[in-house]
Structure formats: structure tokens, C-alpha cells
Simulated scan of single mutants.
Amino acid sequence: MAEGAMRIDKFLWFARLTKTRSLAQLVAEGGHLRIDGRPVASAHAAVRPGNVLSFALHDRVRVIRVEALPARRGPAPEARECYSEVL
């Protein structure tokens, strides 16, 4: 993985957007996740700060901008600093 990038499944889990990493992998591989408008079909797709992610989760569509890459799966307030809601 390139410097300054992270796997999409790891980001979704670290940022507490999904409860488990396996659920994050299912979201990424389900074909309904987009990075900057491009469809993603694999959990190892790279995400970087500035990317806009759109995906369906818990009966709603989330559109978020990646602000920073988390170093760990920390507490919720720390995780929320890694992204901002676009819609």
C-alpha cells in the first residue's frame, strides 16, 4: 500500500463506520461503495485523505469525506475526527 493510504475496509472499521472488519469487507466487496465516484469491488482498495466515499449502510446512504487516516480503532470522538459528513 502506498504511503499516506489505507485499505478501505480497515478505514471503515477504524473510523467506527462499521462494527467489525468483516462487515467492512462485505460493504467494500458488495459493489455499492464508491470512492470519488468510482465503484469499488475489493476490500483492499486504497483510500487517502480528501477522498469522498459513498455507500449504503443501515438503510441509508452515507457520503463522507476522509479528513485523516486513523492510526488505530480508538474511541468514537477520535474516530469522528477522521471524516466529515458531506450529505
Score class of each variant (00 low, 15 high):
28 A>P: 00
27 V>E: 02
5 A>V: 06
11 F>W: 12
31 G>M: 02
74 G>L: 04
44 H>W: 06
53 L>R: 05
14 F>Q: 12
18 T>W: 01
6 M>Q: 14
46 A>C: 03
28 A>W: 04
65 R>K: 14
79 A>S: 12
32 H>L: 13
48 R>H: 10
43 A>S: 14
11 F>H: 06
71 A>R: 12
9 D>C: 02
58 H>A: 15
10 K>I: 11
44 H>Q: 11
57 L>R: 12
17 L>R: 08
75 P>Y: 01
64 I>V: 15
27 V>Q: 00
85 E>W: 11
31 G>N: 07
29 E>V: 01
86 V>I: 15
35 I>T: 01
80 R>H: 12
9 D>V: 00
31 G>E: 07
36 D>P: 02
87 L>F: 10
31 G>Y: 04
70 P>N: 00
87 L>K: 12
55 F>S: 00
54 S>N: 06
70 P>C: 01
57 L>I: 11
68 A>V: 01
66 V>Y: 02
55 F>G: 03
86 V>S: 05
40 V>W: 02
45 A>D: 13
75 P>S: 13
49 P>K: 00
3 E>V: 12
17 L>H: 07
1 M>I: 11
38 R>N: 11
59 D>T: 09
6 M>K: 02
21 R>I: 02
16 R>V: 09
20 T>W: 00
45 A>C: 08
41 A>L: 11
6 M>S: 02
62 R>K: 12
9 D>R: 01
73 R>Q: 06
64 I>A: 00
10 K>S: 08
2 A>N: 13
14 F>K: 11
13 W>T: 03
8 I>Q: 02
34 R>Q: 15
79 A>K: 03
22 S>P: 00
38 R>Y: 08
23 L>F: 03
83 Y>Q: 04
64 I>P: 07
43 A>W: 01
20 T>A: 01
15 A>E: 08
58 H>Q: 14
30 G>A: 05
47 V>Y: 08
76 A>L: 15
87 L>E: 14
21 R>C: 06
10 K>V: 15
63 V>R: 13
1 M>H: 13
68 A>C: 00
20 T>K: 02
16 R>M: 09
81 E>V: 09
38 R>I: 09
77 P>Y: 03
66 V>D: 09
38 R>S: 09
1 M>V: 12
64 I>S: 03
12 L>Q: 06
30 G>F: 03
22 S>G: 03
74 G>W: 02
58 H>S: 13
72 R>I: 02
62 R>E: 15
30 G>N: 05
21 R>Q: 04
46 A>M: 10
10 K>R: 15
4 G>I: 05
47 V>F: 06
25 Q>V: 08
58 H>G: 10
8 I>P: 05
36 D>M: 04
44 H>L: 10
44 H>A: 14
9 D>T: 00
43 A>R: 12
73 R>P: 10
15 A>L: 04
38 R>K: 14
39 P>K: 10
43 A>L: 01
37 G>S: 07
29 E>C: 06
76 A>G: 07
55 F>A: 02
17 L>A: 08
36 D>Q: 11
29 E>S: 13
18 T>P: 07
10 K>N: 04
81 E>Q: 15
67 E>H: 01
30 G>S: 10
6 M>V: 05
46 A>W: 10
75 P>N: 12
49 P>M: 03
64 I>W: 05
20 T>S: 15
29 E>W: 01
31 G>S: 07
50 G>I: 07
21 R>E: 06
56 A>G: 08
4 G>P: 05
22 S>M: 03
59 D>Y: 07
56 A>M: 06
75 P>G: 11
53 L>A: 04
49 P>G: 04
